[in-house]
């Protein structure tokens, strides 16, 4: 059995062992700092008394950046994407999530503008 087990192990497509995949503690702290600064910016922006696109658009942009930072660094998405090496599955999954979310945007638009 153990030989067969080895045989299966030989097909292993795992990544090179020496490479340090996960970021350092310093990166994590800096990431946190960036998130705090962005949050502070968001709150400040909301107090400027703006409305409409001038209020919403910058807030949404900052929100998306925060989203990307947490997913990328804390959830190791950037390094795990390396593991999958830009695998088509990752791309397809990302597109699927994007399209799925856009479905809700369409619903909201249909209500909001009665198109």
């Amino acid at each position: 059995m153990s030989t067969e087990s080895m045989a299966v192990g030989d097909h292993s497509t795992t990544h090179d062992d020496d490479h340090e995949h996960h970021p350092t503690a310093k990166t994590y702290w800096l990431t946190f700092l960036a998130l705090v600064i962005l949050t502070a910016l968001e709150v400040a922006w909301s107090y400027l008394g703006l409305s409409g696109v001038a209020l919403v658009l910058p807030l949404l942009i900052m929100m998306v950046i925060k989203f990307a930072i947490v997913a990328g660094v804390f959830m190791h998405l950037y390094t795990d994407l390396n593991i999958l090496n830009g695998h088509w599955f990752t791309v397809a999954f990302g597109i699927a999530i994007g399209l799925a979310v856009s479905v809700y945007v369409v619903v909201f638009a249909a209500f909001q503008f009665n198109i």
């Binding site: 699927a96 399209l99 249909a110 503008f113 009665n114 198109i115």
Partner: peptide, 21 residues
């Protein structure tokens, strides 16, 4: 699989959704 997500409102043509939809 992908396109199946973009056609749901064909069940709602008489529900009063707008002409563009």
């Amino acid at each position: 699989g992908f396109m199946g997500w973009g056609v749901w409102a064909h069940h709602m043509f008489v529900s009063g959704i707008g002409p563009l939809s």
